[in-house]
């Protein structure tokens, strides 16, 4: 009896230890970004030169993005609680302004996007999940009193990598699927097919996601008919 208690306690302890190890050892990639941030019509501009120190790691310096440069740095971290120190530098590397902030990561989040201008202005969404869940629906769409009907069978490719196949709702089909994409700029490729998988029509569109947005909804009939409002925030 005593043995069993000790044994089950030990097994439990090992499981707890495993979970603990998973949590403290799990890698979270943080993209630090010195880039334009837009929210609710307000625009925060990037700084000329910033130095960012994440936890006790090596500081990274970011210049204002120019040309095709994204003004980004990738930092790998483990653990759930982090603090970040941002120092705005002038041309002679003197600190003009500095700010320290703390943030938490949810354990299942793989990548975070940390925007410096937003952080400096305490704007909501300065740190956000860089992985966006895109919900794609093949359902009737109504706009301006007009209804666009769903298609029999649609293949959707997100960012040229993740492929979804969606049928018309009914007959056990929900007319909906989802995929995870990373970062802010995305493409969407749609193929309308008949039941023999012969492509009848196809279309590619690009779209951008806001920093703070994590779940988005795309309506296929709306996209195909160029109706505004095909991209909305997803609500459960």
């Amino acid at each position: 009896m005593k043995g069993w208690i000790i044994r089950s306690t030990l097994i439990l302890a090992i499981i707890v230890l495993a979970v603990f190890l998973y949590i403290i050892g799990k890698e979270h990639v943080i993209f630090v970004e010195n880039n334009t941030f837009t929210i609710d019509g307000k625009v925060y501009e990037p700084y000329d030169l910033v130095r960012v120190t994440l936890d006790s790691g090596e500081p990274v310096e970011l210049k204002k993005p120019r040309g095709r440069s994204l003004g980004r740095a990738k930092v790998s971290t483990t653990g759930l609680n982090h603090k970040v120190l941002v120092e705005i530098l002038d041309d002679d590397d003197n600190v003009i302004e500095s700010k320290e902030a703390k943030f938490n990561v949810k354990n299942n989040v793989e990548e975070l996007l940390l925007n410096i201008p937003a952080l400096m202005h305490d704007a909501e969404g300065w740190v956000a999940n860089n992985q966006k869940t895109i919900y794609v629906e093949n359902k009737p769409f109504t706009a301006d009193g007009k209804t666009y009907e769903p298609y029999e069978f649609v293949r959707v490719i997100l960012d040229r990598s993740k492929s979804l196949e969606i049928r018309k709702p009914g007959d056990g089909h929900t007319g909906m699927d989802k995929g995870v994409v990373t970062d802010l700029r995305h493409t969407l490729y749609i193929e309308i097919m008949d039941n023999e998988e012969k492509v009848l029509e196809s279309k590619e569109v690009s779209y951008t996601v806001g920093h703070a947005q994590e779940k988005l909804l795309i309506n296929i009939p709306a996209v195909m008919n160029d109706v505004d409002g095909w991209l909305t925030e997803y609500e459960e």
Binding site: L17, A18, L21, Y22, I24, G25, K26, E27, S76
Partner: peptide, 14 residues
């Protein structure tokens, strides 16, 4: 799972 470092080592063992 993207676990890193020493925790990854012990987790792999478990």
């Amino acid at each position: 799972w993207g676990v890193m470092g020493v925790p990854a080592f012990f987790l792999a063992i478990i």
